[in-house]
């Protein structure tokens, strides 16, 4: 068979931009850049608060500058997109059985999203109660 002069197509350099599903996939994966940024931002916040009031005021000025706010708005959108896609896909890796009945994926995903809401509400309460 290898003797046949077959044509071997090359993968297009921008293959991921040439099909909607691939573009959504790449966007889903690139949310991780903002996951890393968000984690770094939290460390910066903790560092400033632990260092003292002057450093914290400096951090608040940094956090309030237009480009950081803009970056965090994008990060909010990206992390929310990550949450929706990740919690939707997670049930595909595990099969939950209750008394032999396989729990359908949409119920597991629904449970995941409910957990997301509950955790978010709990965190907001713990942080914001005075």
């Amino acid at each position: 068979m290898t003797a046949l002069p077959s044509y071997r197509p090359r993968v297009h350099p921008l293959w991921w931009a040439r099909r909607r599903a691939y573009l959504v996939f790449v966007l889903r994966e690139l949310t991780s850049v903002f996951v890393a940024w968000s984690a770094a931002y939290l460390v910066l916040l903790a560092r400033a608060a632990l260092a003292g009031d002057a450093e914290y005021a400096e951090f608040r000025a940094f956090a309030g500058s237009p480009w950081v706010v803009a970056l965090n708005v994008v990060a909010l959108a990206a992390t929310a997109f990550h949450s929706v896609t990740f919690l939707n896909l997670a049930p595909r890796a595990m099969v939950v059985r209750l008394d032999g009945w396989r729990v359908p994926g949409f119920l597991i995903a629904g449970g995941n999203h409910s957990a997301w809401l509950a955790v978010s509400a709990l965190v907001a309460y713990l942080v914001l109660r005075s």
Binding site: Y41, A63, V69, V73, L76, T79, S83, V119, L128
Partner: peptide, 27 residues
């Protein structure tokens, strides 16, 4: 962990507090 925790933390500390929508938590 990122899915459950990051959006709410970014919303509070990265967007709402710097914009003054909520009172930024003091140090």
């Amino acid at each position: 962990v990122a899915a459950l925790l990051l959006p709410v933390l970014v919303l509070i500390f990265g967007v709402l507090a710097p914009l003054g929508v909520i009172e930024p938590p003091p140090a």
